[in-house]
């Protein structure tokens, strides 16, 4: 009895020491990881504001001349435009295909469901080189209404969707599983057909999932380099492709500007996802 009382007196102090040590270690780890992750982005960002004509330390002075140069260059602006068009196309294609496939998966008993699941997920695990090469060989000589498919932005959209669609599918399949089956049944019960139910009841209920999976598709396409390298020509090259090519010829600070533009777009997308998510949590 007395022993227990004594133990109660000393135990919390010992635990407190251990806990604060752990907390300190935790913070050190978090700061290290965060810094490590931010370094590449921060260094490129700093470089883009450097006045020197080479991407190199030491810094010589603050300047916006490379931003002005980037905006004035038709070459860079075309590449940015290509990136945006391809990313939007990928978002539309992969979201519509992925969301519908996920709904079918969560709602209906399909034959060979597990096999189908593997098939849908497979491209996500294939290297971009393989997909890019495969698409380039397959569609190398194909023309639609006299326009060659190879080199077109449409083919890049299809390529990027090979990665974005499985991701959308994965996210939405998990989201659809959280939908209360009885609410879907209630809609049919009140006289709405399956299509009506999907668009008026199901989709609004999973709007957060739809929104974030679309942004993920957008980000994947913006970042993708390998397939775009295989599938584009001078007219349709995306920003990462142009960056790669210009790094080979000359390391101008335009590169750093392009990197910052890409990074900012990605950060903005991720922030939007987070904000939307918080909003939906508050509403629930």
């Amino acid at each position: 009895m007395i022993d227990t009382v004594a133990a109660v007196g000393s135990a919390p102090r010992r635990r407190l020491g251990e806990a604060s040590l752990l907390a300190a270690a935790g913070w050190a780890f978090i700061i290290f990881i965060t810094t490590y992750m931010l370094i590449p982005v921060l260094v490129t960002a700093v470089m883009s504001f450097n006045s020197a004509a080479m991407v190199r330390f030491p810094l010589s002075g603050f300047s916006l001349r490379w931003y002005a140069g980037f905006l004035a260059s038709p070459l860079w602006m075309d590449a940015l435009w290509n990136s945006i068009v391809v990313a939007l196309g990928t978002t539309v294609v992969s979201a519509s295909a992925g969301i519908l496939a996920a709904w079918a998966f969560s709602r209906y008993d399909l034959p060979f469901k597990n096999l189908l699941y593997l098939l849908i997920m497979m491209p996500l695990f294939l290297p971009g080189v393989v997909l890019g090469l495969g698409l380039a060989i397959t569609f190398g000589g194909v023309q639609i209404a006299g326009v060659p498919l190879y080199g077109s932005r449409f083919l890049v959209v299809l390529g990027h969707s090979l990665w974005a669609m499985p991701l959308v599918f994965l996210l939405m399949e998990a989201t659809f599983r959280t939908v209360d089956k009885r609410i879907v049944e209630a809609s049919g019960d009140l006289g709405a057909g399956p299509v009506r139910t999907f668009f008026e009841i199901v989709l609004p209920m999973v709007s957060t999932g739809v929104f974030s999976s679309m942004l993920f598709a957008l980000v994947i396409s913006l970042n993708e380099f390998m397939m775009a390298l295989f599938l584009t020509n001078r007219d349709t090259q995306t920003l990462p492709v142009l960056m790669w090519l210009s790094l080979r010829s000359a390391g101008t600070p335009n590169l750093a500007v392009a990197a910052v533009v890409l990074a900012v777009t990605v950060f903005a997308s991720l922030t939007l996802i987070a904000l939307w998510h918080i909003r939906s949590l508050r509403r629930a």
Binding site: E185, A186, A284
Partner: peptide, 8 residues
């Protein structure tokens, strides 16, 4: 339905 199943 059991828990109402209202459209949220």
């Amino acid at each position: 339905f059991q828990a109402g199943a209202l459209f949220p």
